[in-house]
C-alpha cells in the first residue's frame, strides 16, 4: 500500500494505482477527456494534469502511478489556466455546432467548455475539414468533431480485439481512420461509439430521434443471446431511439452490434406479436393456448405413429440457460428422445 496526500487529504491506495484514481477515491474531481476507466491510460488530452511536489512540470494524473509520500495538487491558478488553454485549443479546431449535434447534453467536451466558461476563444485558425462517407448502416463518423482522444482506437483493440482503426498522419493532420482511409468495414459493435466523449461517433439510426430531453431510460436485458447483457433503452414517446449499456453492469457496459443497433424490430410493423397457424395455406393469428394445444396434439400424433426418435428439438441461443435446460428436459423426458441440439453448440 502507498500513502500520499492529494490537496492536503491523505489516502492509502494499492501500489500501481494512478494519481487520478486515488483522487477519485477521495471524491476530488479532475477533468478528463481521453481517460476511460476500462482502458489503458493514454495521456493525450492533458486535461488531467496535476502538480506533484518535486517535479517541475505538470504531469498527467491518469498516467502517473502513486509513490510513497507523494504530494499532489489538483487545482491551482496555473493548472486551471493551462486547462483553459487546452480547451480553447480543442474548441478552435471543432465545429462547435452543439445546437444541432446528436451528442449535445451528453458530451464531455461540451460539459468542460461549460464549466470553464469558454465563451470566447483566443485561438482561431484553420479547422480540419473531412467529408462524411461511410456506407455502413450503423456508425456515423464525423471526424471534424474528433478530438483524437484515442478511446475508440483503444476499445477496438483492447476490448474488442479487432483493431479496425488507428491513428494516421502527423501534426495537425493526424486523424483516426481505418487502414488506407477505406470506409469503415468492421463488425460494427459500436464500442467506439459508446466510448467517444464527443459527437464524432454516433449511431446512424439515432439521428434526429431525440437527444437527452424527454428521454426515458429503461434498464432491461438484451434478448439476442443467452449472455444476457444489461442494456438501457432510451425511449422517447414510446419509441426506442437508442440502446446503451451502463458501466457498472456485469457486461461492463460493453455490447455487440446486435444489442446496440438491432432494436428496429421493436417498433417494426412486421413484428410478430401472436402465434400464427397456417390454415388453408394462409397464416392466421391465434391465441397462445390454441397454438400450444395444436403443437402438443401434432407432437403426440407423430410420436405415436413414428416413435419418439422421429422427433428432434433445436433450441436457440436467444433463450436463457434455464430455458435451454427446460427444453432439453422436455425433449428427453416428455418426448423421449436424445435428438436435441442448440444453434450455438459449435
Amino acid at each position: 500500500m502507498v500513502k500520499l496526500t492529494i490537496d492536503g487529504k491523505t489516502i492509502t491506495v494499492p501500489k500501481g494505482t494512478t494519481v487520478l484514481d486515488a483522487a477519485r477515491k477521495l471524491d476530488i474531481p479532475i477533468p478528463t477527456l481521453c481517460h476511460h476507466p476500462k482502458l489503458t491510460p493514454f495521456g493525450g488530452c492533458r486535461m488531467c494534469i496535476v502538480e506533484i511536489k518535486g517535479i517541475p512540470r505538470p504531469v498527467t494524473s491518469c498516467t502517473t502511478p502513486v509513490t510513497e509520500g507523494m504530494e499532489v495538487i489538483t487545482s491551482s491558478p496555473r493548472l486551471e489556466d493551462l486547462r483553459k488553454t487546452i480547451l480553447e485549443l480543442i474548441l478552435s479546431d471543432h465545429p462547435n455546432d452543439c445546437m444541432v449535434c446528436e451528442r449535445a447534453g451528453d458530451c464531455t467536451l461540451q460539459e468542460l467548455a461549460y464549466f470553464y466558461g469558454i465563451k470566447e476563444n483566443r485561438f482561431q485558425g484553420e479547422r480540419r475539414r473531412y467529408e462524411k462517407r461511410d456506407g455502413n448502416p450503423f456508425i456515423e463518423r464525423d471526424m471534424e468533431k474528433c478530438i483524437l482522444c484515442g478511446r475508440c482506437v483503444k476499445v477496438c483493440s483492447e476490448v474488442q480485439g479487432v483493431g479496425a482503426i488507428d491513428f494516421a498522419y502527423r501534426g495537425f493532420n493526424a486523424k483516426i481512420c481505418p487502414p488506407y482511409e477505406h470506409d469503415l468495414d468492421c463488425e460494427f459493435c459500436g464500442q467506439c461509439v459508446a466510448v467517444c466523449p464527443t459527437g464524432a461517433l454516433t449511431g446512424k439510426m439515432w439521428a434526429l430521434k431525440g437527444r437527452q430531453k424527454e428521454i426515458k431510460e429503461v434498464d432491461t436485458v438484451c434478448a439476442y443471446c443467452g449472455t444476457g447483457c444489461n442494456i438501457t433503452l432510451h425511449v422517447r414517446r414510446n419509441e426506442v431511439v437508442r440502446v446503451t449499456s451502463k458501466e457498472n453492469t456485469w457486461n461492463e457496459g460493453w455490447l455487440c452490434v446486435k444489442g446496440r443497433f438491432g432494436y428496429k424490430f421493436i417498433n417494426s410493423p412486421d413484428r410478430l406479436k401472436t402465434p400464427l397457424i397456417k390454415k388453408r395455406g394462409k397464416f392466421k393469428e391465434v391465441s397462445w393456448e390454441e397454438a400450444l394445444d395444436y403443437t402438443a396434439k401434432k407432437l403426440n400424433a407423430i410420436k405415436k405413429k413414428y416413435g419418439p426418435d422421429s422427433i428432434g428439438g433445436l433450441s436457440s441461443a436467444r433463450c436463457t440457460t434455464e430455458e435451454n435446460y427446460l427444453f432439453q428436459k422436455f425433449i428427453r423426458a416428455v418426448i423421449g428422445t436424445n435428438n436435441v441440439d442448440h444453434c450455438a453448440r459449435l
Binding site: S92, E126, L148, R170, N173
Partner: peptide, 17 residues
C-alpha cells in the same frame, strides 16, 4: 508542427496556432 505525432492537444493544435 509537421512532425508532431498528434497525440497531445498542446502540441498538435498549439503549435499549429
Amino acid at each position: 508542427q509537421a512532425e508532431s505525432c498528434g497525440k497531445c492537444v498542446p502540441c498538435r493544435i498549439g503549435t499549429k496556432r
